[in-house]
């Protein structure tokens, strides 16, 4: 028996997963908790969110007192990736960059760390 807290939503259900009973999940409020509970014990996965560098065509390299000009573009993995690959993924993410304009959903890295998930932009940044 393994006790977990579900991370699927902010509710944070206290789950119990029974390894000896086909990974049966109890304590979950919804179906997603069951899926999470089983996966967390057998093959845990996480969505990774981070940022990548922005290449700006203009010479404007940032300083702006209103804080409006970002130096980084936020990104996420389009799907959860195996937890043990998270730090490897961060290495790839840090080496990556985007040209502007960039839109939500634009792929920055295809199949990150050999997974089926892409790294995608999570913000529209035009200039």
């Amino acid at each position: 028996m393994k006790e977990l807290i579900c991370i699927v939503c902010p509710r944070g259900c206290h789950l119990t997963v029974d390894e000896n009973n086909g990974y049966a999940v109890t304590g979950n409020f919804c179906k997603r908790g069951e899926v999470y509970g089983k996966a967390e014990v057998t093959a845990p996965v996480r969505v990774v969110t981070s940022t990548v560098a922005i290449h700006r065509a203009s010479a404007k390299t940032a300083p702006d007192a209103a804080g409006g000009i970002e130096a980084r573009c936020p990104v996420k993995t389009s799907d959860a990736i195996p937890k043990h690959l998270v730090l490897d993924a961060m290495q790839q993410i840090y080496a990556a960059s985007v040209d502007l304009p960039v839109h939500i959903g634009d792929v920055v890295i295809h199949g990150i760390c050999g997974t089926g998930a892409d790294l995608v932009a999570t913000k529209d940044i035009l200039a």
């Binding site: 940032a62 300083p63 702006d64 007192a65 209103a66 804080g67």
Partner: peptide, 10 residues
């Protein structure tokens, strides 16, 4: 703070 740092850096 972050804005002042930017101004000073500039």
């Amino acid at each position: 703070g972050p804005q002042v740092v930017k101004l000073l850096a500039e």
